[in-house]
Design a protein around this nucleic acid. Structure first.
Length: 159
DNA sequence: GCCAACGTTGGC
DNA sequence: GCCAACGTTGGC
């Protein structure tokens, strides 16, 4: 069963353009350090799942485009690196605490969908992004996904 | 296992 | 930079 996800990232740290610029447009999605997000990533994400990529903590928070999960979940290497911000001394190779997947860039929306827009649209009133904005790995329904794709094309045509 | 203290996130 | 929300930690 394919699930659709929304992954948050801070563009100052790693933007969708950075993902696109990676070799093959592909990168490990490291740095998830929240247990609920970790559980979803580790237990529920599957290779082939679509992901929406969202920019947070920036001037205009917005869904910027799409990617694809292109690996099974595996331990986040940064947890073992003492020099990394993601280092976790409680992690061992036998019992890693944090996981990641590889994400492949698919497209950037010519018209990103802003958080403001989502909040203003009743269709998205029950979207996790609106209800629980801090969770970094979010579920997106098929309906929300289709609406977002449609909006990303319609956006700007009338604005 | 509760709960207070503390730290982090993220919109504004 | 502020502040509200909320996740995590640690003492008991």
């Amino acid at each position: 069963m394919t699930a659709i996800w929304l992954l948050k990232t801070e563009p100052d740290v790693f933007s969708i353009a950075d993902l696109k610029a990676c070799p093959g447009g592909r990168s490990g999605w490291d740095g998830v350090r929240n247990f609920q997000a970790r559980n979803r990533l580790r237990d529920d994400m599957r290779e082939g799942d679509p992901v929406l990529i969202y920019h947070s903590s920036c001037a205009t928070p917005a869904i910027m485009g799409e990617g694809l999960v292109v690996s099974a979940p595996y331990p986040d290497p940064s947890q073992f690196d003492p020099a990394s911000d993601g280092h976790d001394p409680r992690s061992t190779h036998a019992a890693p605490r944090w996981f990641q997947v590889d994400v492949q860039f698919v497209c950037s929306y010519s018209h990103p969908i802003t958080l403001k827009q989502l909040k203003a649209n009743p269709e998205f009133a029950d979207m996790e992004l609106v209800l629980r904005p801090r969770l970094s790995v979010q579920k997106v329904t098929e309906r929300q996904y289709q609406l977002i794709q449609r909006l990303s094309q319609a956006n700007g045509a009338t604005a």
